[in-house]
């Protein structure tokens, strides 16, 4: 079997245009989910059961449903049931945001739990305000616990963007499939697409390494 990369000369631009959808999905989901995940994590760890129990229930429900089903619901069911109509890319962003908010929310909750009890006592004993302490003391200490799984789930998300093809988002894998059908060159096209995913993931890993240094308070990475 010959290996002919010239297929990327003819079909490459078409496939790469799918990067736009992939990156919009990824950026949209990561940027919108991040603050929502912090709120979810706080609700999951809240003292008040009126916050905690609904958050636990929703988290159990949303994380239990395959993301593909969530996308189908966002795109096919919401218009019928609630008359909410979205184009396929918006529906995909909404569906993934919902799913990721609770996945990442659990990560944030685990991070909050990792902060030693003594820190909360020192904050209480000094009468420090809740929000200020959350921002300046608790979250910075939770970050080293949050970052690695957060980036892992983000890398899953990068690959998961391909699911959006199922509701008609012409992201990169969908376009690659079309190109394969047209050229009968699956090997070259799929290897190329895999490399592009690898490059996106490399950015995320670089981000992880940077942020792990940024939030390293114990000094074992900065040496």
């Amino acid at each position: 079997m010959d290996f002919d990369l010239s297929v990327w000369m003819t079909r490459g631009p078409y496939i790469l245009r799918g990067l736009y959808e992939t990156l919009v999905l990824l950026a949209g989901v990561l940027v919108i989910s991040a603050p929502l995940a912090v709120l979810t994590g706080l609700a999951l760890e809240a003292r008040s059961r009126w916050l905690r129990l609904p958050a636990l229930g929703l988290s159990w429900l949303i994380r239990g449903v395959p993301p593909l089903i969530i996308l189908f619901i966002a795109y096919y069911v919401l218009p019928v049931v609630l008359d909410i109509r979205m184009d396929s890319l918006t529906a995909a962003v909404a569906g993934f945001v919902l799913y990721n908010t609770f996945i990442m929310g659990e990560v944030v909750a685990a991070g909050l739990r990792s902060v030693p009890k003594g820190q909360h006592e020192a904050i209480a004993a000094a009468g420090l305000p809740w929000f200020r302490s959350l921002r300046r003391i608790i979250l910075p200490q939770a970050m080293p616990t949050i970052i690695p799984p957060y980036v892992s789930y983000s890398m899953d998300m990068v690959k998961g963007t391909a699911l959006a093809g199922a509701i008609g988002v012409t992201e990169m894998v969908t376009r690659a499939n079309q190109a394969i059908v047209a050229t009968n060159r699956p090997f070259e096209i799929l290897i190329g697409v895999a490399i592009i995913y690898g490059i996106i993931d490399a950015f995320l890993i670089a981000l992880q390494m940077w942020s792990e240094r940024r939030w390293d308070h114990k000094g074992h990475l900065s040496a």
Partner: peptide
């Protein structure tokens, strides 16, 4: 009110409980 009153009472702990990020 508790937060305000606590500012009048200094407390030092067995395990220091300093804020490690500061």
């Amino acid at each position: 009110d508790l937060a305000r009153r606590r500012t009048e009472i200094g407390m030092v702990f067995q395990h220091f409980n300093l804020f490690p990020n500061m």
